[in-house]
Simulated scan of single mutants.
Amino acid sequence: MTSMAQIAAFGGVVLLGAMSPGPDFAVVVRRSAVSGRTHGMAAAAGIAVGVFAWVVAAATGVAALLAASAVAFTVVKVVGAAYLLYLGIRSLHAAWRGGGALKLDVPDPGGRGSWAAFTEGLLTNVLNPKAALFFVALVPQFLGSGVSVMALSGVALAGTIAWFLVVANVVSTLRKVFARPAVRRTVDGVTGAALIGLGVKLATSTRP
């Protein structure tokens, strides 16, 4: 397999991983629905940077150390699960509170800005030890034969952000629908329940 073919194959696998439903997807959908396109895209960018970091970490052996160390894995797992539970509880609280009609000319109802959305996406990805295991298993298979770490990291970054930008733009296009209080409460409630479920699943997971 040529270098370009290896890079393309790696990008395809990473893209399929990004498309799988999970906390990253839930965060981008909620941010895009509630705060709009800009914040959804910022969350997407944060997730993509997290993926970039995991590829580099896997290639340099840092992620392998995390995967091999029971203590390190547990610490990241607990912190990541706690963060997902925090996001889920916050979403459920927003659903319970209602919040009235969304004013579409206000970019962020929470007043926290795009940087907060970016950080939310980044932390959601980076604090998921399952991502470490995924890339530890994947990256070594594509290194060598002229394929550089930066090439793999770059294609992972590009593929991930491309997918989540599509999600952010599609959801934000329907934002007038999400502006309805009943729809917003449903989105917040479903997203909150999903994030809490994912947090519990992560907290109870074990290393393979």
Score class of each variant (00 low, 15 high):
residue 91 S to P: 13
residue 118 F to L: 12
residue 62 V to M: 06
residue 79 V to D: 08
residue 55 V to W: 08
residue 100 G to K: 07
residue 92 L to M: 04
residue 126 V to D: 00
residue 68 A to S: 06
residue 54 W to M: 12
residue 79 V to F: 07
residue 81 A to E: 03
residue 98 G to W: 15
residue 59 A to Q: 10
residue 59 A to M: 11
residue 133 L to H: 03
residue 134 F to E: 05
residue 103 K to G: 14
residue 63 A to H: 09
residue 132 A to E: 06
residue 48 A to E: 04
residue 105 D to A: 14
residue 103 K to F: 15
residue 140 P to C: 01
residue 87 L to Q: 02
residue 46 G to K: 05
residue 97 R to W: 13
residue 67 A to L: 12
residue 99 G to D: 11
residue 80 G to Y: 00
residue 82 A to H: 06
residue 95 A to V: 00
residue 62 V to A: 14
residue 50 G to H: 12
residue 91 S to A: 15
residue 103 K to L: 13
residue 113 G to C: 05
residue 62 V to P: 07
residue 111 G to W: 02
residue 97 R to E: 06
residue 60 T to Y: 10
residue 100 G to W: 06
residue 122 L to A: 06
residue 76 V to C: 10
residue 52 F to S: 05
residue 104 L to H: 07
residue 102 L to H: 09
residue 139 V to G: 14
residue 121 G to Q: 06
residue 50 G to N: 12
residue 65 L to V: 14
residue 84 L to Y: 02
residue 58 A to V: 09
residue 128 N to G: 02
residue 70 A to F: 11
residue 64 A to Y: 13
residue 114 S to M: 10
residue 112 R to D: 15
residue 77 K to P: 00
residue 97 R to N: 10
residue 127 L to K: 01
residue 47 I to T: 07
residue 132 A to S: 05
residue 91 S to V: 11
residue 102 L to C: 09
residue 51 V to A: 07
residue 75 V to L: 11
residue 133 L to V: 12
residue 63 A to C: 14
residue 121 G to L: 04
residue 108 D to V: 00
residue 54 W to P: 04
residue 134 F to S: 08
residue 124 T to H: 05
residue 66 L to W: 08
residue 49 V to Y: 10
residue 111 G to V: 07
residue 135 F to E: 04
residue 115 W to P: 03
residue 66 L to S: 13
residue 95 A to Q: 11
residue 89 I to F: 01
residue 120 E to G: 03
residue 65 L to W: 11
residue 84 L to W: 05
residue 130 K to G: 12
residue 71 V to Y: 08
residue 58 A to W: 08
residue 82 A to V: 08
residue 84 L to G: 01
residue 64 A to T: 11
residue 117 A to N: 04
residue 102 L to N: 08
residue 71 V to G: 13
